[in-house]
Each structure stands twice: as structure tokens, then as C-alpha cells.
Design a protein around this nucleic acid. Structure first.
Lengths: 177, 177
DNA sequence: CTCAGTATGTATGCCGAGTATGTATGAGCC
DNA sequence: GGCTCATACATACTCGGCATACATACTGAG
């Protein structure tokens, strides 16, 4: 995922060094996203290479190297925030391929697979509900809003599974020739 | 995304060479997923390296090299089909980061951003509806089912945007200390 | 025959992401 | 004070996904 703009957003307002970026990013996501250490630094290097960010001052305490947004960086961030998110390309997800293959291979029928998938979504619903509760308790309304989105998604998935499992499956689905 | 299992699934039943895999894969997705040529071959190489697939016979027509599933490949495919999909890690999507950053930076307020996002989702709904219609016309019920899933997702996104934009936004959202 | 297009495959490089390693600092213990 | 251990901070290496570009053979139109 695009750590890129997450990093830019965090650097807006005050310069930070890599480790601190990592901590703030994870804090912003309320612990739901453990970022890889290395990823932060490579991201910062790429941002520097592209002129969106530049190192500020000499290295500090223990080699700390802080970065700040360049004018181009500000521009890029504002632009990203201004354009709507297009999400991951539609239908390019594992579940879709799995469904297609399961339909044509039909190893033991689709119904068991749908049931399993439904259970997985129910579990996710529970997890998300717990997360949302916790976020609200912690005063993280912004986080709770995100989780609400994930909840709606999962509910949609469940509804989908229900629709699918109430269909009558036959030998359909193949392209007619 | 995991081309890996898509390729395995296509090879189940009959050996295919790379180019043919590409064509069948794209046909299976009804043209909604243009796969990169190179990706197919590297995927096949990795599958061969991992012993899930093996080249069959000598190269044919114009260097064509067909692959078939190994016993391990069959096993891996069946196993993948049997386990529920866990989806992309929750909250690891651009839109979430964008929302968080927009909340704290609030460049011109959230409402315009939410409105833009809503428009984008509406457009997507239209696109998906057209796609679904076409799939049904073509007798691709299996494809239509996938698109139905994407539609439900998009509706969930819209609902989310509606909920968000009817909230009263203040200076909330920051972690309390 | 030639040229365009298509079928088929390879090479290369960026980015995301994970693992492992290295080094300074400070905290606690004897 | 010296040892050890955790933590803060950074870098290097590896692999998979994905895209672009390139190479080469065949095929069919004119």
C-alpha cells in the first residue's frame, strides 16, 4: 500500500526521522497496521530521490536523520488528498478468482466453500466490532470511522455470500459458444 | 494479486503454455483484468521452481513450452480452494490513510472530499452495472456473480460516505492525552 | 516479396514487503 | 566502574508483484 502519502502527511507540519515516522504512522492507525521498519526508510529515500522530501540539518542523537516536506512534496500531498481514491482495481482480488475457479472445478460443490467464507466474514465482523469499541473508548473517533467502513464492507461480503448460496447452481457459467 | 492460483487453476485439467494461460485467464475474467505478459512467465517459473508445475514435452510451434500441474500443484490448488479467503489486510488501504490525513489536515474541510469520493463511487456503480448487464448478455453468469460482489462493495462504500458526511465534524478525532 | 500484425517468449527495473544485521545509548545490576 | 540487556535508530539483502521494453518467429494481405 501507499505508505508514500502516509509519510508525506506525517511530515507535513514538522520534520521527523524515520523511526519516529514509523511510530506515528502506527499510532495513527491505532495499532492495526504494523509497518515494516525497512519500508519506511526506502520510502523516505525514494521520496528524497523524487524531490518530495529533503533531509534537514545534520544527523542528531544516534544517527537520527530528519526529513521535511519540500514545496513539491506539499503540492503532491495536497493533490493526492484532493483527488478521489479509486481503490484497488475492481475484480483483481483473490476471492473473485477463487470463486471462478471453484465454480468450474466444483470440488465438492460451492456450498461448503460459501459456508466457510461466510463464517470467516462473521468472525471478521466480531473482530471489527471489538476494534471499534476500543477505538471509541480511546477517544479515537477518527479511527472508529475507518473501522465503520471496514464493517460495512464486511457486511456487504456477507450479503453477497447469502445471495450466492441461495442461487441454484447447475452447469451454468461457462461462456456460451 | 495472486496470479499464482489462477494459473494453477487453469492448468488443472490440461497443460497450457504461457501465452495461452494469459488468454484464458483474461477470458475467464471477461476482459476486466488485463494481465501483464511477463508476469505470467515469471509466475510459471516460480511455480516450477517450487515444484507445483512442470514443463511437459519439448518446445512446440514457436518456442511454445507447455506446463502441467504436478501432484504437489494439485494439492496446493485444492488446499487454496478449500480455505476461506482472508482478503487484503483490513484498514491497509489508501482510502483509510487518506481519510485520516484529511481529518487532521482538513484542507478545505472534509465535506468536499467526501462529496468527490461519493461521485467516484456513483460512477463506479454505473460502470459495474453496465458490466453486469454485458456479462449476462454473454451468458457469463459466473462473471455476473463477481460483478454483483463488486457492486455490493461499492454500495457499502457509498453508504459509508453518507454516514460520514452526515456527522458533525469538529476538532475531534485526535487521541486524548 | 514485403510489410504488418500476431503469437510467443525473455530481460530489466521499480516498488512493496519481510528478515536480518549493525550501532549507539541508556538502565539496571553486581 | 564494568557488564548486560533493552531500546532507538538505521541499513542491507531478498523475494514477489507488476510494468515496459525487447526479441523472434510465423502468418496473411497486398
Amino acid at each position: 500500500m501507499s505508505l508514500k502519502y502516509g509519510v508525506l502527511g506525517l511530515l507535513k507540519g514538522e520534520p521527523l526521522h524515520g523511526y519516529e515516522v514509523k511510530n506515528r504512522f502506527e499510532a495513527m492507525l491505532g495499532g492495526t497496521w504494523e509497518v515494516n521498519v525497512g519500508q519506511i526508510y526506502t520510502t523516505l529515500q525514494r521520496l528524497e530521490r523524487d524531490g518530495l522530501v529533503r533531509p534537514v540539518g545534520p544527523r542528531g542523537d544516534r544517527g537520527k536523520l530528519a526529513y521535511e516536506l519540500s514545496p513539491d512534496g506539499h503540492k503532491a500531498l495536497d493533490q493526492w488528498l484532493a483527488e478521489p481514491d479509486s481503490g484497488p482495481q475492481q475484480l483483481h482480488e483473490d476471492i473473485y478468482v477463487k470463486l471462478l475457479l471453484a465454480t468450474r472445478i466444483a470440488n465438492g460443490g460451492l456450498q461448503p466453500m460459501l459456508a466457510r467464507q461466510k463464517r470467516a466474514y462473521l468472525q471478521r465482523l466480531r473482530d471489527l466490532n471489538r476494534l471499534e469499541e476500543r477505538a471509541r473508548r480511546d477517544g479515537r473517533i477518527d479511527l472508529a470511522r475507518l473501522i465503520r467502513g471496514a464493517l460495512l464492507h464486511t457486511e456487504a461480503d456477507l450479503k453477497w455470500m447469502d445471495e450466492l448460496s441461495s442461487e441454484r447452481f447447475g452447469a451454468e457459467g461457462a461462456p456460451k459458444e
